[in-house]
Amino acid sequence: MTPIEIEKMTTNELVEHFVAIAIDQDNASFEENNAKYNRLYSQMEAVRSELKIRPGDQRKALLPLLNHPNLQVRLKAAITTLAVAPGPSRQVLRTIASSNRLPQAANAGLILNGLKDGSFVPK
């Protein structure tokens, strides 16, 4: 498979790629396939880094995903945008954490705990 050259992608394409990765993560998590999930995690990290270094910190392009119908997409978008839009991102994390949908609720709660005690600082 040809590796995706994310530096050549437009910002909109990166956002679409981010969504696709998150949905695949959701499936990998359901299947309890750690290796697949972690490969996808690396891919998402690459997208995050690419968005961050673009002029104006284009992670803000992920903000519309805070209303995405898929919960994993919302979760990952909220974590990624904490540094650029902490208010709405935290609100989405609180909503997910209070839901009964696991593991997303647990992951949102973990990030909120980290923000509260200072062990997680958005960069």
């Binding site: 750690n34 999930y37 995690y41 974590i79 062990s119 997680f120």
Partner: peptide, 12 residues
């Protein structure tokens, strides 16, 4: 789920 989560990379 908890066992699975122990093997998943996490921002925290």
């Amino acid at each position: 789920q908890i066992n699975g989560r122990y093997g998943e990379r996490n921002e925290k």
